[in-house]
Nucleic acid binder design. Structure first.
Lengths: 137, 137
DNA sequence: CTTACTTCCGTACTTAAGTACGGAGTCAAG
DNA sequence: CTTGACTCCGTACTTAAGTACGGAAGTAAG
């Protein structure tokens, strides 16, 4: 048995399982246009492959980073390679946004790890720099 | 006129304006316990200061990074300095989570900036590494 | 060929995170 | 001391992102 058996012929259920989401979520993404509805090779049941799996995983990851489905769909539009100039401008705007988030997240990282360090050292009460972490700028 | 006039005696409306949110949002956070309801120095109207402003800004920043209000409230609980051991464990779990997000966000950053570069160089169609960026691991 | 499990599709329900609304009380200016 | 803006509070509405449901039709195993 292969490690990715029949990955190019998954049913919607298999896709959902592979991506760790609900079947209804897949269908919801299709309705929203975030995921294409592939054709039905034999009969009337659709089959999904690695591309679709990648997309679903991408969506979930981007969401975890605070992107809304609308934003994800903009990100995905950049991916198709057409209207390059437009995509480039769009990508640059997103990049600014992403870099701000990175900076925020890095400050949280620093604050949390300092909290862990200190808490390790001083047993007792201390005031943590968590809120201050996101004050800068 | 000072740059932060009366920052220790803001009304709810001033606080909301300063934080860039709706008055109702402030009240909503109070109901959720994310924000304390300060006492009313003179009469029956509450006054807010820099601490509350910091909190609201923290909440909004954390949300932008994909933390839910429940998660934010856990983060805020770490801040009070009591039950240190517990907080430390909690902080360490969050830290793992935050570092995963950082890695994802860094991959998106790399993919976007590569997209901008390439789009600059090759005029025409190309396939961007955006989805692939979040496949790793 | 039947039986059990899926898929498909539309519609309805749920949860999180606000937003809006309406009436009563408060406060500062004119 | 009234007028206009604001606060307080409770309740109701909205939006995004799913989740659940129910009936018809497809499909794989026995």
């Amino acid at each position: 048995m292969n490690s990715t058996p029949e990955i190019e012929a998954m049913t919607i259920g298999a896709l959902a399982r592979a991506a760790g989401v609900n079947v209804e979520t897949i269908r919801f993404y299709q309705r929203k246009g975030l995921l294409p509805e592939p054709d039905r090779p034999q009969g009337s049941i659709r089959r999904y492959g690695a591309d679709e799996l990648g997309r679903v995983r991408f969506i979930k990851s981007a969401q975890r980073l605070g992107f809304s489905l609308d934003e994800v769909s903009e990100l995905l539009k950049l991916e198709d390679g057409s209207h390059c100039a437009e995509a480039r401008a769009q990508a640059q705007r997103k990049l600014v946004d992403v870099r701000e988030r990175l900076a925020d997240l890095q400050r949280i990282e620093a604050a949390l790890s300092e909290l862990v360090q200190r808490c390790n050292a001083i047993r007792g009460r201390m005031r943590c720099p968590l809120i201050a972490a996101l004050q800068a700028e």
